[in-house]
């Protein structure tokens, strides 16, 4: 059996897939109408605003937000580490909140605004957090860095918003960007090179010594 028999692609097949997509756009297919054993995997139309630019694609429903960013929009700054929400390398901001983009489906984010590391700053105009990571040597291999920086920017926002953490002594007093607070809040971002102390120094600098520091 040659490759063409294994994966027969005819003009008719492509057209049929197009029709299936159009049907899906009009309303959900039920599982009975779309048996999984046959035909192309089900897709859905997705519109995302990524770093200010609007993207529209029909994506396989299984596509994670991470894979949509990397494989479809070629924004490879966001990294795939564990792909199970354990390492934080894939951290992006969705409507300003940090999430693990590997544990979310792109189709669930239709209409959402996504900010990736590419949207925070550019090589010519670094975000203050990027500049601080450079200044403090907050990395070694750099693979976790985009996730660390996206997370760090969000952490300072969470502190400014008064969101407490596990190590906050009081649930009611405004939290401060102390070393203990930052270490706890950054625990979802793993750095295998162990640049943690420099990462904390960088975030401390951007966050200032008290709440209300600029991010």
């Amino acid at each position: 059996m040659d490759k063409h028999e294994l994966f027969p692609v005819s003009r008719r097949g492509v057209l049929a897939a197009g029709v299936a997509t159009a049907t899906l756009a009009g309303g959900p297919l039920s599982a009975q109408e779309a048996p999984m054993a046959e035909g192309p995997p089900p897709t859905s139309p997705v519109t995302l605003k990524v770093n200010g630019k609007t993207h529209r694609l029909d994506l396989d429903n299984r596509t994670t937000l991470l894979d949509a960013l990397r494989e479809h929009w070629k924004l490879t700054g966001t990294k795939k580490g564990c792909d199970h929400g354990q390492c934080g390398a894939c951290t992006v901001l969705v409507d300003g909140r940090r999430i693990n983009s590997c544990l979310s489906l792109a189709v669930m984010h239709d209409g959402d605004e996504i900010t990736t590391i590419e949207g925070l700053g550019t090589p010519d105009r670094l975000h203050p957090m990027q500049a601080a990571f450079v200044r403090h040597d907050g990395y070694q291999c750099g693979y976790c860095t985009p996730g660390q920086i996206c997370s760090a920017v969000a952490v300072l926002g969470e502190i400014r918003a008064g969101i407490p953490s596990h190590v906050s002594a009081s649930l009611e007093a405004p939290p401060e960007p102390s070393i203990d607070e930052l270490r706890e809040r950054m625990s979802g971002n793993i750095c295998r090179c162990g640049a943690y102390s420099n990462i904390i120094d960088a975030i401390r600098e951007v966050g200032g010594q008290g709440a209300g520091g600029k991010a």
């Binding site: 934080g88 951290t91 693990n100 997370s151 969470e158 407490p164 649930l171 979802g188």
Partner: peptide, 29 residues
Amino acid sequence: LAADARVRRDYGVLSRALLAGASGQLRNK
């Protein structure tokens, strides 16, 4: 839920339990 002012004031054990779980990214989702 953990950050809601009423939960923090009246149901501190719930805020504390939530904040003891997972990571910031996961709690946001």
